[in-house]
Design a protein around this nucleic acid. Structure first.
Lengths: 209, 209
DNA sequence: TTCTATTGTTGGACTCAGTACAATATTATG
DNA sequence: CATAATATTGTACTGAGTCCAACAATAGAA
């Protein structure tokens, strides 16, 4: 409930959205995601409970701010691709472009601090919604560029597989500890796996014991 | 609240679980998933609200009974595969085995009646949890058979891609209208896409306008 | 049969996410 | 300064999911 006038002079007042994000990030780390209520967050942020819902549709949205932004960018990048280009290559290039400026600073909360925040299940489900959104984007793109229906089995399989691989890159990057290698490297490797085929990537036979 | 004694003589009393499932299926169709409360379901089923939670952890679980069973079976099938076998082939075979006896009768509620039940978003999120579980199964299997970590990027990418393709097969099968072709056929095609590689499946260049 | 342990079912009280809507404050714009 | 647009708040509500203690039903042993 600290009024803006108590801020240092001249300093621009932080937007409610940013204040809420910061408060949430702190509390998730202190008390885990599950034990943090929206009321806690808004109390610390010094706003009313309803203000939270002005900026987020769900508690879990705060976890995925960065990823959502990345998916938004991917969407714009894909829309900008002219027809006639090799579809798979363009998806790969767009994905890596979007991801290449994601550094140690801007990372989805959920990914890096998953263990700290406990209850991976809680966060996973909401994360999966992002996977689905990305699948939709890619499916639409593929459908447009291959002149097929977005409900086509080939299109859907490919879109889901690609989105899954992208997810894997994010996940492993985070688990390895961001900063080891840039995310773009993981992304490229994950793409290769599905592009070239699992048959090729995994080999035809598994390791004997 | 109808006591069992009012049932026809000799007929074995239906388990609460089945009664709840049936009531839910009816109500979802009548009023959509979103507008059906757990109280509605249990009232029609003639049990108390708490009994619902004896059998299901969440309202959405009722939608996925069949799919959950299929994933359980997949898990058992994979565990039974001896070491040294070609991993990808075995996953493919196990998946198709599991799916081959799924007919018009036993279908996840959520898939077939998605439009009827309205609000696909609601159902999608819970469905994604199944995709994740299947990814985990496959990742564990691959890790074991390739002697790699389940957190390995190759393993995770492959697992996610496969699980995504499997999802696509279910989805398209349902959208096409079950009964057109057996699910196993869709499944085989979806597998081919990721196994042989998207590069191959999609071609290197897209269609020009 | 009767006693007993186990399992299934219920009631009740509770927390919290998310929604709806009207009222008020704040800011921008003429 | 007046007015419109936007941000914020208060209040009241629904419904999912949890917890726990009480109670009913059933099976098995004696």
């Amino acid at each position: 409930m600290i009024p803006a006038s108590q801020n240092a002079v001249g300093r621009p007042r932080a937007s409610s959205r940013a204040v809420i994000e910061d408060a949430a990030a702190e509390l998730f780390l202190e008390n885990t995601y599950a034990l943090t209520t929206i009321e806690h967050i808004t109390q610390r942020a010094g706003v009313s409970r309803n203000t939270f819902f002005n900026y987020f549709d769900a508690k879990s949205d705060v976890l995925w701010v960065e990823l959502d932004a990345a998916i938004d960018r991917l969407s714009r990048e894909l829309q900008a691709v002219p027809r006639g280009r090799p579809a798979l290559e363009e998806i790969r290039a767009a994905t890596i472009r979007v991801v290449s400026d994601i550094g140690v600073d801007r990372v989805p909360l959920a990914l890096t601090q998953d263990d700290v925040m406990g209850t991976a299940e809680e966060t996973r489900v909401s994360g999966l919604a992002r996977l689905a959104r990305r699948s939709d984007l890619i499916a639409d793109f593929l459908a447009g560029h291959l002149l097929r229906s977005p409900n086509d089995l080939l299109v859907l399989s490919a879109a889901n597989a690609l989105s899954g691989a992208i997810s894997a890159a994010w996940t492993v990057w985070a688990r390895d500890g961001i900063g080891r290698h840039p995310l773009a490297e993981y992304m490229a490797e994950a793409f290769d796996v599905v592009s070239n085929g699992l048959e090729f990537a995994l080999g035809t036979t598994s390791v004997a014991e």
